[in-house]
Write a protein that binds this DNA or RNA. Structure first.
Length: 425
RNA sequence: GGAAGGGUGGCAGAGCGGCUGAAUGCACCGGUCUUGAAAACCGGCGAAGGUAACACUUCCGUGGGUUCAAAUCCCACCCCUUCCGCCA
């Protein structure tokens, strides 16, 4: 959620930062235009209600005093009956106006950080650097590699659940588990994260705290008969671990890593990546989450991204780091780096991790604040990134490790987790 | 799912219609004392809105209601704990 103070005091700067996302900030009927009108109305009604409340409180106190002394207070009582009725009316109106204003604020994305490059689409994303030597020879797509080895079973997935579900067998199933272990161990032992294990089902409030709701309900799996949802990413439960809390500045930054399954309806991605396991309704991911100070957010984003890169390097997977342009940065983020791994069958880089700084946006929504010694509480800055998406990692290993004889070389870092095997054949 | 108990400031815990945004203790901050620290003593110390600063308003799980007045009474819901049932 945007800062209400800043909304009023730095309206023009905020407009500009939102316009760079491609948002129409001049449309009076759009969220931005409505927010301004609703804010004014909300403030007017509130101050009216407050003035009357003050009157009511003052006289009520007087009545109490008079009665205590045994004096007659019937004149005040009669007058207050009317005031009380009006207060209730105004309170209700003010509350409604406040709710309307908040509702619109919840629909407004995070203003971009000044350092985010301009752009109109993902084509304008900026490549920062590349790592590794992408293989240029012809490699079959992972679905063929996996089918030939008998370790990826798309038909079984479709039978059990539908399209965009996959069953892993044998070495693929084990590698999925190995990747999970390897990533968590690396982040815990080498990068200093505290591992957490969290629910994959969360309630509406939690989903709202990180920004998935109210705007993106269609992308989520909702449980029937309950106001609860399957998580689309561990970001949601892990960040919300601290919802409503005031943290000590000295405990920051807090760094968590977590494995969870992730569930996405993939509404609106019809026809994209229909084959294989690039885009699944259920996938595994190890997520990195930081809670930090506003001052540190940007430099911590570099650190976090580096932690995700370390996994790709350890797995010997060629990749590139790109920075998303204004048009491509997600709703809640102020700045985002994507890591894209090389997929030889497609001869292109595909997203395997997304690392973002959210500034105070989520901290404000989820009520996560911190206090510097003697200071007032202020929203924490949050960051998160995939470290990494496991299914896509498996895909990358199958394709990048594929040999002419149909076998797949297992990266050395993973062999210990695979019973010492050096390849899948 | 059934029964009982409970949700109050960072924590613990009083309050059970008006003078209570809230006793008390702990924690924390400032001071006195001390070579320093501890102890002791004195003072301060919830959050949000609002203001130049005050004033003022709101918040005692959430939402409604009663009342001139609600943390306190009534209703609904949510959550937690314990017991029973079920169960990986």
């Amino acid at each position: 959620m945007i800062d209400r103070q800043a909304f009023r005091r730095s309206f023009d700067e905020m407009s500009a930062a939102l316009a760079r996302r491609g948002m129409d900030v001049d449309d009076p009927n759009g969220p931005w235009g409505r927010a301004r009108a609703l804010d004014t109305r909300q403030r007017e009604l509130k101050s009216q209600a407050e003035a009357l409340q003050a009157e009511r409180n003052r006289v009520s106190r007087l009545i109490g005093q008079k009665k205590g002394k045994g004096e007659d207070a019937s004149a005040e009582l009669i007058a207050m009956g009317e005031v009380s009725r009006k207060v209730k009316e105004l309170e209700a109106q003010a509350k409604e106006a406040e709710a309307a204003f908040t509702a619109v604020l919840m629909e407004i994305p995070n203003p971009l950080h000044a350092s985010v490059p301009d752009g109109n689409s993902e084509d304008d994303n900026v490549e920062i650097h590349r790592w590794g030597d992408p293989r240029r020879d012809e490699v079959p797509p992972h679905w063929d590699i996996g089918a030939d080895l008998g370790i990826l079973d798309f038909e079984a997935g479709a039978t059990l659940a539908g399209s965009r579900f996959t069953v892993l067998r044998g070495a693929a199933a084990r590698m999925e588990r190995a990747l999970m272990q390897f990533m968590l161990n690396t982040h815990v032992d080498e990068h200093g994260y505290e591992e957490v294990w969290v629910p994959a089902i969360v309630n509406r409030k939690t989903m709202t705290g990180t920004g998935q709701l109210p705007k993106f309900e269609d992308d989520l799996y909702k449980l029937e008969g309950e106001d609860a949802f399957l998580i689309p990413t561990a970001e949601v439960p892990v960040t919300n671990l601290y919802q409503g809390q005031i943290l000590d500045a000295e405990n920051l930054p807090i760094r968590h890593c977590a494995y969870t399954p992730c569930f996405r309806r993939e509404a609106g991605s019809a026809g994209r990546d229909v084959r294989g396991m690039i885009r699944q309704h259920q996938f595994d991911k190890v997520e990195l989450v930081h809670l930090t100070t506003t001052e540190r957010a940007l430099s911590d984003l570099e650190t976090l991204t580096g932690h995700a890169e370390a996994i790709l390097q350890a797995l010997e997977l060629p990749y590139r780091l790109i920075e998303l342009c204004g048009a491509d940065v997600g709703f809640s983020a102020q700045k985002t780096y994507d890591l894209e791994v090389w997929l030889p069958s497609q001869q292109c880089y595909r997203e395997i991790s997304s690392c973002s700084s959210f500034g105070q946006f989520q901290g404000r929504r989820a009520g996560i604040r911190y206090r510097k010694e003697g200071g007032k509480p202020q929203p924490v800055a949050t960051l998160n990134g995939s470290g990494l998406a496991i299914g896509r990692c498996l895909v990358a290993i199958l394709e990048n490790g594929w040999q002419q004889d149909g076998s797949v070389a297992i990266p050395q870092a993973l062999q210990g987790y695979m019973g010492g095997a050096q390849s899948i054949m």
